[in-house]
Design a protein around this nucleic acid. Structure first.
Lengths: 204, 204
DNA sequence: ATGAAAGTTGAACCATCTTTCAACTTGAAA
DNA sequence: TTTCAAGTTGAAAGATGGTTCAACTTTCAT
């Protein structure tokens, strides 16, 4: 998840100790940026949390931007890896989207820092930000298209529907996952899924 | 839209010239923050765009945060004032939401900086950020509840539906308003509204 | 055991940007 | 025409925090 190694000056750790430190720095960065945001978070804050010296940071990362980029890619992958397998168990296309939202809500409740980090990528690394949402949307479009072929959803599903449902999920995750998790996640998922089922489903 | 005047040290302009400068600074700040974001944007960048000296900034604003706060409130109000009256023309609750999205898309295409500014409030002034979305959602919940009473939409509409539809709108605005405006806005609005109509409508 | 590569350290350097301030200009009321 | 509050100016103070670096310690293959 960061195997560049452009031969020039490779920052990849070569020993177990180095690996440990790099990992501690990434975890500390998730905390630091999650709590304070990118600009208010500081590298000295990261190294303090990681329990190492300021200078060690530059053994593994080129800059503050560099570790942030690594973090966005990492979190984006974590969501995908948490949600993906769960969706695979679904019996049909509508069910898949319900499980997708449900597991996303669970993930957001467990990792409340994810919003601050992904959202701030809009300012720190726009390419990573767009990549995250475009990848998520295109995975959803692919799922919906497959579901349409199986007759689970209307034949006219397209990108617009995917962005609509993704936006729905993101905002429900913010409101009912991060800001306030007092209502059961499956209740939220059921309400939203009913909207989706009638909206694009074929069973009407 | 900023009549504090706490007697202490009032920054309200007292002359027409002062009013002009303050206004130029706000407009310049929208440009500067829209282009570079809050942290990369600088006060000297703002005064340069506004065509005045660095020091003049502090005649009208206490700090960088202060002008940003003023800007978020201003943009939030602009969206509300653009979308609100258009919705009022709708013949029913579903039509209202279609017009709401359509006019939001139009607004986003005309003011692409709005996303950067509102989104960055999450980091600069979280209270303003939550206020913006909570106000928007509660206005939508109120509209939907009224529509339910008129029989336009299902009786069980609630906050969750409002957040779902708002999230849909925000993401469609980002993808088909700001990032790429090649598809007609009313086409996007029609597709999303069909989803909403079948999803919460009563005509089904 | 030993030497070289990998990793660690934190003070200091440096660039940037917010904020202050005291001198100066403007414009309108008396 | 005079006066003065309001507004303007930009250099410089002050603060912050990213980045560098040269000395030091640890690890591990031989």
């Amino acid at each position: 998840m960061a195997e560049d190694a452009t031969a020039k000056d490779d920052k990849t750790p070569r020993t177990a100790r180095g690996e440990r430190t790099r990992h501690a720095l990434l975890a500390a960065a998730a905390q630091e940026f999650g709590e304070k945001g990118f600009h208010d978070g500081s590298i000295s804050g990261i190294t303090r949390r990681a329990g190492c010296a300021l200078g060690s940071f530059y053994t593994y990362f080129d800059s503050k931007d560099d570790i942030f980029r690594a973090l966005v890619a990492d979190m984006s992958g974590q969501v995908r890896d948490y949600v993906g397998p769960r969706i695979a168990d679904a019996r049909n296309g509508i069910e898949a989207e319900r499980i997708g939202l449900l597991s996303f809500l669970e993930f957001a409740r467990e990792h409340k820092e994810i919003y601050r980090i992904i959202d701030e990528a809009e300012f720190v690394d726009q390419a990573a930000y767009r990549a995250h949402y475009e990848n998520t949307a295109s995975r959803m479009t692919a799922r919906l298209t497959k579901a349409a072929a199986r007759g689970d959803v209307r034949a006219d599903v397209e990108e617009v529907h995917a962005w609509a449902i993704m936006g729905m999920n993101v905002f429900l995750g913010l409101r009912f996952g991060v800001w306030d998790d007092s209502r059961p996640a499956d209740e939220i998922a059921a309400i939203a899924n009913a909207l989706v089922e009638r909206g694009i489903g074929t069973k009407a």
